[in-house]
Design a protein around this nucleic acid. Structure first.
Lengths: 194, 194
DNA sequence: AAATCAAGCGGAGGTTCCTCCACTTCGATC
DNA sequence: GATCGAAGTGGAGGAACCTCCGCTTGATTT
């Protein structure tokens, strides 16, 4: 399971690549030639590709920390806000995260799409975050109890990516409102809130 | 407005490219080198790029007919089914269309994203189709009257693209059900009988 | 401290993308 | 049917992608 630890030089290279990637990605946008990253890190292009087999893997690794923060803030949100509102607020952060870290778009696509190896960690974390929010909402009776967190994550990422392409913040807000509506319990009898 | 008509040879080339593209796209998948298309059509690569400035433009043009059919079927659906059911059925077709014409994924992304020039026609057609379905649903009281067709199209395409990446038909179905729920009128008092 | 060898490195090279612009061809005009 | 400008062509070439494999080097064993 735990792959044997990297050789010292390999670890050094990996870290250097990551450091450079973080800097360069936020500086020159998500399209930087990988060759440039490798050069700047003082390693060959082959080395970069061995450590990060795809561009997405690199971006994912580079933004791992930010992604952790996004997931961790769920607990805070649930303290401050009612569950449905917390979910809605989290959606906004999700979207912001996506548009700020411009490079994350394609990485997220890959991340959500693959059930697979290289993103397992990030993916699980996101699913967990959604699950927590949904559970809280279900207990409070504010959200449906019959939707899978994974489904919500996929739909949410799809909507956010499409909205991000559109470059229209207001629209993004409307779409997220709309999607939240889908997660409310189906109409029953008198719905008396507020 | 109407750009002057193409010169005879240009039109010939354009048509040849399109014919080849249709064949090659369905034969070799969406990643075919554009150079191959050009070669097979007996024109230079430069010519291909002038007629279709991006890969997406070519794919869009190649599947124009299919897309028309998708949009045209709305009327039929509305004859056979109640509006909400018709919309739901149309969503399925939309999704099928997307996954069958594998190449259409990225083209659709571009198409929905851009408010702009090269896809204006396709985009309008899709928006119209959605608008028709929504209008019917609103009149029947089955769907909300306060959502913009464009918003629905963007969300729908996002969801479908994400689901298509996932390669899981069941999930796609669930996500579309979920999204449909978002379009139902908000709970009011006594909700419908049945 | 020498020997061993898997783990790791790097970059040449094949492939595709897309731009650019000198040249060719069309078709309108005389 | 000759002329000429605009419209269109094609492919060379520069940039980036990614793979492959012969060479180098760190760790381990003696």
């Amino acid at each position: 399971m735990a792959a044997r630890p990297l050789r010292a030089d390999a670890r050094r290279n990996r870290e250097r690549l990551l450091a450079v990637a973080v800097r360069v990605l936020s500086q020159d946008g998500p399209e930087v030639p990988l060759e440039a990253v490798a050069r700047e890190a003082g390693v060959g292009i082959g080395t970069l590709y061995r450590h990060f087999p795809t561009r997405e893997a690199l971006v994912d690794a580079a933004y791992q920390g930010e992604l952790d923060r996004l997931c961790d803030c769920v607990d805070d949100l649930l303290v401050t806000l009612a569950p449905a509102a917390a979910l809605r607020a989290w959606m906004d952060r999700f979207f912001d995260y996506l548009t700020t870290k411009r490079g994350m778009g394609s990485a997220l696509r890959a991340l959500v799409a693959s059930g697979g190896d290289p993103f397992a960690r990030s993916r699980d974390r996101l699913t967990m975050a959604v699950a927590t929010l949904l559970r809280a909402g279900a207990s409070a009776g504010e959200l449906r109890a019959d939707v899978a967190p994974d489904d919500v994550l996929v739909a949410l990422s799809g909507i956010c990516l499409a909205a991000a392409d559109r470059q229209d913040r207001d629209q993004a807000g409307r779409l997220l409102d709309l999607f939240l509506a889908a997660l409310r319990p189906p109409a029953r009898r008198g719905s008396p809130p507020s």
